[in-house]
Design a protein around this nucleic acid. Structure first.
Length: 219
DNA sequence: GCGACAG
DNA sequence: ATCTTGTCGC
């Protein structure tokens, strides 16, 4: 039987860090996914001067990328933005939006990092673990780790490292445009993650999943 | 002690 | 994240 992973969101920053340390060992970095037919993009926006968090999910068909389903959820914002603790601010609303889906997705693409995080437990890892769904972190900027710029051609990438370990990849999703920071969230290897991110990127820097979710979260 | 710091 | 017009480059 699968152990329950639910926990309280009513925590202090110090307690949040302790929770990340307690859960990080459960993250699976090997490929444990089936056929991917439904890819979900997740994004968050804020309303009413930041007092309300709005989460949006856009499910696209894979590999065709047709829009299949969308959900939106609103919750009072209860946790501040603290680098390294983003999931405690955004996931409560995201979970509400995800549970509204008619059918669970086969893969999640999150705004923000997976294991490319100081405690290897970014928002994508946290969400993938809680939902028990394969997940990938897709950040627009770097949070943790070092790496060189990949060649300027679409599809080129370079490793993102921390303490001699490869924790992610700096990926050129579009020629001549600023690269993205991709990392395993849960149940997806880095190589597989890069493949799905590229598979979701057509003519823009960001994956279509993220673009659709962003349109809903802040439109 | 001084920077860095997802969204 | 969010506040916001024009502007440089392909």
């Amino acid at each position: 039987m699968k152990a329950s992973l639910t926990h309280s969101w009513n925590v202090t920053p110090a307690e949040a860090i302790a929770l990340q340390q307690a859960l990080r060992g459960r993250v699976i970095l090997a490929d444990r996914l089936g056929t991917v037919r439904r890819v979900a993009g997740v994004d968050v926006g804020f309303e009413a001067d930041g007092t309300v968090t709005r989460a949006a999910v856009a499910v696209l068909a894979y590999p065709g990328l047709e829009l299949l389903e969308t959900t939106i959820a609103r919750r009072p914002t209860e946790f501040p933005y603290v680098p390294g603790l983003l999931s405690f601010r955004e996931l409560p609303a995201v979970l509400d939006a995800l549970t509204q889906l008619c059918e669970p997705p086969d893969l999640l693409l999150c705004d923000g990092q997976g294991i490319a995080h100081p405690r290897r437990f970014g928002i994508a890892s946290h969400l993938g673990l809680l939902m028990d769904v394969p997940s990938i972190g897709v950040g627009k900027t770097r949070l943790y780790g070092t790496g060189v710029e990949p060649a300027h051609q679409r599809g080129q990438w370079s490793p993102l490292r921390a303490h001699q370990e490869v924790i992610g990849a700096i990926v050129r999703t579009r020629s001549g445009v600023k690269p993205l920071y991709v990392s395993s969230g849960h149940r997806v290897s880095l190589e597989t993650a890069i493949g799905y991110v590229m598979g979701c990127c057509t003519r823009y820097r960001l994956p279509e999943t993220t673009r659709q979710a962003h349109r809903l979260a802040s439109g």
